[in-house]
Design a binder for these strands. Structure first.
Lengths: 410, 410
DNA sequence: CAGGTTTGAGCGGGAGGAACACAAACTCCG
DNA sequence: CGGAGTTTGTGTTCCTCCCGCTCAAACCTG
């Protein structure tokens, strides 16, 4: 059965929506810019831009500031920017050892963010839901009002069904079959969508929009922590698969006989995950991020065992990346989590193995870079998916808020 | 740098194009149907459908036949179908041991097809170009006229840069860095686009539109011959990657120490390719499709060596498929080439290993099926990509043909 | 300060689909 | 067999929305 594809037919109302969306999306992704820049970006005429931007400002979504002099001849064009707190989204992230929450507005502006450490271990679902909701009170701007938030996005390190936010399994949290989206939505009691996604899928979205992969339309993001996750951008769009499970590359079949926590044997994760690096360095596999930190520090100090562990892990990483380059033909591979550190210290061997295990043609056009956003990437990505409906259809979102009527000629 | 994304802004001319495209695409993909079916499919009103279909028929692109009585109350709706020979495409396919050519019209109607055996070996590029062009004269309908053909599509088993049809490498043909698109275009002398793509990428397109995966929007197609190729449909669109190289999963890192012809070691292809099956059955790795045929026949006759070879190859296939299921979360895996036969005889073990090497969530929603189209899949897919511009913009294509003016109000 | 250039403002026009009313063609049922 | 009900084609009018054009404003250059 064909998924509910977008209506094929275009009608004049669709056109308006698409054009408003084009403007808002351009401002959201490329930042504030003059009307004439918008003309260039969208391909619309000055007249159209004027009317549409006018409606956006009238609705409080955008604002026009005095033009910035750019030293070129001609009448200066006023700068249009989105109003960050007009339609804010709330983003949550459940990390391995921390919880975080943020309020993020259009344009990706962070209006407030808090992070707390979480004792490593398998917390009950309800405890985490409570903690997250409790975090809201500690936001700099205070607890967001129910009516003002447009949607909620959540990043979870696990296999998540995107439709309803069911967490099929989250090994680091000890969850399986947790209807997290529904639980959080109930607990919040807001009448807005709660979107739950895999951490790495959100990480790559953030890196694509605000980080290392801006403007790059084919990206493979590989995130190393205890396990290995990935998020993939294909032709500018996130790869989700039929239910949102795509990108679970940690369990690609690989060499080795180590039993994986997924139940299988020889998964790539068993060779490149944090546990593998730790084991190679002679530490317990569950020494966590502090253990990893120690390994990297030791390597920097010249410790041969640590250096060798890093090299071996880098090689295994490079081999797998080669396969991913063959599979996706990306223009960029972004390394997140401790793979970023690994890249600093093992860049050479990673590339060496990637080179050995990929075809010349795709290899020639790929760059491997460390992530730019660090631990906040999933949080930023969560806001991006939460804001997506606004970007796709700014007008009706305004209408549904109540405080502002439909954009249509007031 | 952002690839030339579609213009964001919509204008009324865009709307018309999109709506004509929606109608033509619906008819092309879902077959002839009544006007009222088109109303349902496209979301346009009766008025709009009437006008647009009217223009298409006036231009000779579509035709309206007497309504088919369907035994339901109400005035019968005339059936609209595309005129197959209005804007035909020419498709070529360069197989391991055959060459084929076809003329295919809108709706995927095959107007004529020829296939010749090709001596196995490394033919020169020019010889193959000559053979292909020569094939046109042996088409049932005669050599297509230069002016009537709308585009040319070519399927090649190799790594192809989609932009210009440069064949980076084609091991079965012994090619590397062959500008095949340009060569064929020159030799034909027609003033139409020549689109060259990887065989498997075209195969999955054909299976998606006309074969085993109709209506399935997330598909992984894996094709086994001498090597292993794949084509992937993500959310209804082919996965191309930055330059069209995506889907080279034959060289995913895998267990084993066999040297691959790609230069690397332990590629998946070395364990599941035709050579691997042959070797396991005690035949030379280059025994080709006749050799494979013999193995399957022997297995059907109960030969233990053949059975074991098939089982081992099936296991290796299942393991890799598990990884692909994790990576892409497809709704369907389609097995082409000799993998189709393999599936018949080793269905059990393939699934067993797939199950062992994939996560429960994505595994639960995937089906593994043999390809439905056989050796013709790439040829049909080549026609699909060649016809794509017509589907995307029926009006200007008509205009550019010369014989018919722009669709605009005549 | 005059000329050139770029852009905003406002108005008219055109394109294209929606909505509506009516007619046509079919089924169903008494 | 014929009228009621239903679905769909036909044609007209209307509405939405963007484009194009003209004029004015605001900047740079010399």
């Amino acid at each position: 059965m064909r998924s509910t594809r977008q209506e094929l037919g275009q009608r004049s109302e669709t056109v308006r929506r698409a054009n408003l969306s084009a403007i808002v999306r351009t401002l959201h992704e490329s930042g504030p810019q003059s009307r004439s820049d918008l003309v260039a970006h969208t391909g619309l005429t000055r007249s159209a831009i004027r009317v549409l931007v006018g409606e956006l400002t009238a609705a409080g979504l955008a604002s026009e500031d005095r033009a910035v002099r750019r030293g070129r001849p001609g009448r200066p064009s006023p700068e249009v920017s989105l109003v960050p707190d007009a339609l804010p989204a709330v983003a949550f992230s459940i990390g391995v050892d921390s919880l975080s929450a943020a309020v993020i507005g259009l344009g990706g502006i962070v209006l407030g963010v808090v992070r707390i450490d979480r004792p490593r271990g398998h917390d009950g679902v309800n405890a985490i839901v409570d903690d997250l909701v409790g975090l809201l009170d500690r936001l700099p701007g205070g607890r967001p009002q129910s009516g003002s938030v447009v949607a909620v996005g959540v990043a979870v390190a696990g296999v998540v069904r995107s439709r309803d936010g069911l967490v099929e399994v989250a090994p680091n949290l000890g969850w399986s079959n947790v209807p997290f989206g529904a639980l959080l939505a109930d607990r919040l009691g807001w009448r807005v969508a709660v979107v739950v996604r895999n951490e790495a899928d959100l990480g790559v979205l953030a890196e694509h929009r605000r980080g290392a992969a801006i403007g790059v339309d084919d990206v493979v993001y590989v995130h190393g922590e205890a396990g290995v996750g990935s998020g993939i951008i294909v032709d500018g769009r996130p790869l989700a698969g039929a239910a949102g499970y795509a990108g679970e590359i940690g369990h690609l079949p690989f060499v080795g006989q180590v039993r994986c926590r997924c139940g299988s044997v020889g998964c790539w994760e068993t060779e490149v995950g944090g546990g593998a690096l730790l084991a190679r360095a002679g530490l317990p596999r569950d020494a966590g991020s502090e253990g990893l930190e120690r390994v990297f520090a030791a390597a920097e100090a010249g410790d041969p065992a640590a250096l060798q562990a890093i090299e071996a892990t880098g090689r295994a990483l490079g081999v797998g990346l080669g396969g991913l380059v063959n599979t996706f033909n990306p223009r960029m591979v972004v390394l997140g989590g401790f793979f970023g550190r690994l890249h600093q210290q093992a860049r050479q061997v990673i590339w060496e193995e990637l080179e050995r295990h990929s075809l010349p043609a795709p290899r020639a056009m790929v760059r491997v870079v460390p992530a730019a956003l660090g631990v906040d990437a999933p949080l930023l990505g969560a806001a991006e998916v939460a804001l997506e409906p606004v970007l796709a259809d700014p007008a009706t979102r305004l209408g549904s808020r109540g405080s502002l009527v439909q954009l249509a000629s007031a």
